[in-house]
């Protein structure tokens, strides 16, 4: 069973069919929170390309996800500037609490994912929690903010 209306999605996507496959994938994720397998056929149809082509674009970009996201997503920067002020420690501490940022583990409806640079390099280590920027973070501060956001 499809957990969403294909017709509804088709309606949204066909307004922007000229903007290409990536835009359609991003729009799908914006509307549904992720890109369900079955939506690839809808996108292929709307954009008039093969399903394989859509799949190729889908798998290239790390933002696009094939499963629903956790309620709260913590994106931790692991690039050089944040490494210089302890992002490796943040990552290790999150790991010790059951969150593997490489795998994007979901636990208690909170996910921790790695990201390469948020442009907040003067206030490293940086993170983004459901789109809200945080600077000079620790693992504790991140998980605390995430659990507050869940309520």
């Amino acid at each position: 069973m499809t957990p969403y209306s294909e017709d509804l999605l088709r309606g949204v996507l066909s307004q922007h069919s000229s903007k290409g496959v990536l835009f359609a994938l991003q729009t799908t994720q914006e509307v549904l929170g992720y890109v369900p397998d079955s939506s690839l056929n809808v996108i292929a149809d709307v954009c008039n390309v093969s399903r394989a082509e859509v799949y190729g674009v889908f798998t290239f970009y790390s933002d696009l996800r094939k499963t629903p996201p956790a309620q709260v997503v913590i994106k931790v920067c692991v690039a050089e500037s944040c490494q210089a002020v302890g992002s490796r420690t943040v990552v290790d501490e999150l790991h010790a609490r059951g969150y593997d940022v490489h795998a994007g583990t979901i636990q208690d409806d909170i996910a921790c994912e790695q990201i390469f640079c948020l442009g907040n390099c003067a206030l490293s280590p940086a993170a983004l929690i459901n789109g809200v920027p945080m600077g000079r973070v620790t693992a504790d501060a991140l998980l605390q903010a995430a659990s507050e956001m869940k309520q």
């Binding site: 290409g20 990536l22 835009f23 359609a24 991003q26 954009c47 674009v57 970009y61 933002d63 696009l64």
Partner: peptide, 24 residues
Amino acid sequence: RAGAGSYVCGEETAMLESIEGKRG
């Protein structure tokens, strides 16, 4: 146009591909 989490799309020709909606 928004990117989708790919560093190499900062390379100018990969960026063009991405704006066209393709793999970068």
